[in-house]
């Protein structure tokens, strides 16, 4: 029984539990709050995987930016209308979908659980630090990195163009 195992089970359990709450909560705002908790727990799992820079990015981008964006949109839309929306979808389609998801999950989980592979004890000295991430991003993956900036620019323009009301001054 070591500390790392306990932390793993705590954070993994919390991440899975809050993810389940996200998809079952009646209120969209509760879903969004559970989503923040889920992202924090995943950041903790990243720390356990020695990916410290990723954990920080996860909290900044997911728990910070994306969930705030989601909450903003929920508040822009009509909450009472959202609450009325919880009847069930087409029952047959839903049942078929759930069965397929269950089969896929069980098969994948069985495959993954076979013959455990431990993590190597030794790691490169700078593994997971900002230095290592920067080294890879700016040397090995410089072109994709620059393309991502183009993608983000396109996303900003698209978001403004879509959310912009016809007739409004830009």
């Amino acid at each position: 029984m070591n500390a790392q195992a306990i932390l793993f089970y705590v954070f993994a359990g919390a991440a899975l539990g809050t993810a389940a709450l996200v998809i079952t909560a009646k209120n969209a705002i509760s879903s969004a709050i559970f989503l923040v908790v889920c992202f924090f727990n995943l950041a903790a799992l990243f720390v356990l995987l020695d990916a410290h820079f990723l954990a920080a990015t996860q909290i900044l981008v997911y728990a910070g930016a994306i969930t705030v964006l989601i909450l903003f949109v929920i508040m822009l839309l009509d909450i009472t209308q959202l609450a009325r929306m919880e009847g069930s979808r087409n029952a047959t389609a839903q049942a078929i979908g759930l069965v397929l998801v269950a089969i896929a999950t069980v098969l994948l989980a069985r495959q993954v659980s076979e013959s455990p592979i431990g993590f190597p004890e030794s790691l490169p000295p700078a593994f997971g630090t900002v230095e290592a991430a920067g080294d890879i991003l700016f040397k090995q993956y410089l072109l994709p990195f620059e393309l991502v900036s183009l993608l983000l620019l396109a996303a900003i323009v698209a978001a403004v163009a879509l959310a912009h009301r016809e007739g409004d001054r830009p």
Partner: peptide
């Protein structure tokens, strides 16, 4: 799997 179940079962586009 949890994410897929959410996509399959919910009607609210935000969820």
């Amino acid at each position: 799997g949890t994410g897929v179940v959410g996509v399959v079962t919910r009607r609210n586009a935000i969820v």
